[in-house]
């Protein structure tokens, strides 16, 4: 069942991906991108990564696409004109795509664990390991993990914990990166003063 769903969503993503590239109208392309993001979100949810799946929808399918469409409206781009690509450009593109695709297929085929399913996460062992690492046995994550009534994982808590306890340095760099992005937008969009 899982694998059927996986292939279904993967196909949907590829189809919408083609839609993004093939459409002449940029707004249609943007809408196809939404379909693509939804497929990604579905794959995340199938991997039990509910939080990332939801964020994928909220941030990418929501905010990012709205931004895209806004920009398209501001720029008032009509449908792109049909361009004739030289035959050799198409041929080289196809060859590169086929080589890379074939390579990925070969490498994926050579993986040793193909077909083997990962065992479900042993929650009791996980809690034990966490406590051993000096984690408070009554912390929110541990209580959720030990609570038999809650079948899923406290992924929001786990991501938060990882970000703020194990990866604070990474988080700070992301903050700097966003600052640079904001400064950059201002620098590049500045108008000529009269």
């Amino acid at each position: 069942m899982d694998s059927i769903l996986f292939y279904l969503f993967a196909l949907v993503m590829i189809a919408f991906g083609f839609g993004v590239v093939m459409n002449r109208n940029p707004v249609t392309s943007a809408m196809c991108l939404v379909g693509c993001f939804l497929g990604v979100a579905a794959l995340f949810i199938m991997l039990d990564a509910f939080f990332i799946g939801v964020v994928q929808i909220a941030v990418y399918a929501g905010a990012v696409i709205v931004l895209f469409v806004f920009i398209l409206m501001l720029l008032d781009i009509a449908g792109e004109k049909r361009r004739e690509f030289p035959i050799h450009a198409i041929a080289i593109g196809l060859i590169v795509a086929v080589i890379v695709g074939g390579q990925i297929a070969m490498v994926a085929g050579s993986l040793d664990d193909v077909g083997g399913k990962f065992p479900p996460i042993d929650k009791a062992a996980a809690v034990e390991a966490r406590v051993e690492r000096g984690n408070n046995p009554d912390s929110t994550i541990n209580t959720i993990l030990t609570d038999p009534k809650k079948p899923s994982y406290p992924d929001v808590h786990i991501i938060g914990e990882a970000l703020f306890t194990r990866y604070p340095l990474h988080l700070q760099i992301v903050a700097v990166l966003l600052t640079v992005g904001a400064v950059g937008v201002v620098v590049l969009s500045k108008k000529r003063l009269e």
Binding site: I173, V176, L177, V180, G181, V183, G184, V187, L188
Partner: peptide, 11 residues
Amino acid sequence: SLELVTISFYV
């Protein structure tokens, strides 16, 4: 860190 460098350079 690589992205921080690259994005500064884009601008």
